[in-house]
Design a protein around this nucleic acid. Sequence first.
DNA 1: AGAAGGACCAGTGGTCCGTA
DNA 2: AGAAGGACCAGTGGTCCGTA
Lengths: 274, 274
Amino acid sequence: TTTHPLDAFSQEGISEERVQGEKEVVLSRGGTNWEMVAMQQQQQQVHRHERKKQKQQQQPQRRKKMSIEDEENDDEDDGVGGGFVSERQREHPFIVTEPGEVARGKKNGLDYLFHLYELCHDFLIQVQNLAKDCGDKCPTKVTNQVFRYAKKSGATYINKPKMRHYVHCYALHCLDEETSNAIRRAFKERGENVGAWRQACYKPLVTIAARQGWDIDAIFNANPRLAIWYVPTKLRQLCHTERSAAAVNTSSIGTAANAAAAAHHLPFSIRDSS
Amino acid sequence: TTTHPLDAFSQEGISEERVQGEKEVVLSRGGTNWEMVAMQQQQQQVHRHERKKQKQQQQPQRRKKMSIEDEENDDEDDGVGGGFVSERQREHPFIVTEPGEVARGKKNGLDYLFHLYELCHDFLIQVQNLAKDCGDKCPTKVTNQVFRYAKKSGATYINKPKMRHYVHCYALHCLDEETSNAIRRAFKERGENVGAWRQACYKPLVTIAARQGWDIDAIFNANPRLAIWYVPTKLRQLCHTERSAAAVNTSSIGTAANAAAAAHHLPFSIRDSS
DNA sequence: AGAAGGACCAGTGGTCCGTA
DNA sequence: AGAAGGACCAGTGGTCCGTA
């Protein structure tokens, strides 16, 4: 592993045997050492698809500021011989894993997903430090600039669409790890796919928002790990919709205190209490 | 004055006589009632340039979201007869006025300039309230959206280039009104133009930043009236440059507290204490 | 089918420069 | 010449949809 140790991770699935041996060590203290896991995997490099898809794909129309970064493709041959260097393959898809569980085969687990959010935080801090040193304006959120910096730093497995896609899952993990873990276990047991798990993460967040005056932005900002992430549009919309529904109910029945009245067959009923 | 009372302001210069009579009343309590001043001016409407410059000027290429707002041009004939409705004229240029002084002739004074910043604050609050009601993301700064809203509300005399141009002048007014006032008086007395006054507002701000650890963003954010404005690029750059210069000096001379240590010719010495 | 992510797009921050 | 502001532009937030 030469240039970008982190980048090497998850290029191949994890061997069950090797991981089994390392698992307790790696996962001790609740924090997986993903770099170490990456090491394991590197020794297992097997088939790399050789795809074509030219780097020369129709100049993206704009490009002015960034420094040289196109040279880095040469780093791609990390010891695995072969006539020509293959294009970097996609990350393995996520599967629903329980807390502490490392995914097998060509899959990534949810602890790793959440780890990526922490990595973005680290990259943000680096970008912030650079900005401060240069007297530039200093981002408070994970912006395009941070994603660009992460990629340039070799973290090619971090990208904006992915991180945005799962932000609310990470939010639940930060705000109510118990519930987050419970959902992971339940969905794993039921054999649900990642998409179903992801969808399921919305509801408990809306419930949390309901308890705290519906201000999802304030909830994100109050949590230091979450404050650097934009509130996802869909989560914001769900909170708004539920708040409106709750307001209608409140105006006709009132809240918990007079729940008894709810028995009287109302047109709109209470959602998501608990 | 029918639709947009505020909009009518400063279309014409202020009559000296009328203003003289009203001045004490209008300026009492330190806050000018610009709407009242606008009233005065409306009764003085004289020459309106009739310019052509079609509204039809080459469709700006993009336009999707905003609602109907092009109809509003009909409001332009505010009682002043004439065959055809003239295009709205530019705002009168600013002149350096002392605190409390209303500009004469086809000019606007600096109290009015600062008043525009307060108006933007009000528009921001309205946009924020709308956003909250709709469950949209809520701006914390005066954004394009706010300028658009201001224009739609009839405040055609508010525009982004102007407000951004003088932000740092307003900042000084907010952070150190004494100094701001002193500069206004001095520059008025010397007969300096607005550009010269504007330039002069940078230095005292840099001095303030120096006293507070050079963090101009923190300084803006700590002041409720300023926190809604982006720190102007040039001010940020000036602070950065000065900080660097100060650091060099500190490393060779040292600051007050450890000036003695400087005698020992240290390779790297303390930075930025005090 | 389920999922990862390149790449697009509307609207942003920033300010230049044609205008008066 | 000095100044106001329409309008442009590079890079943003957001996410679709061609890809694998």
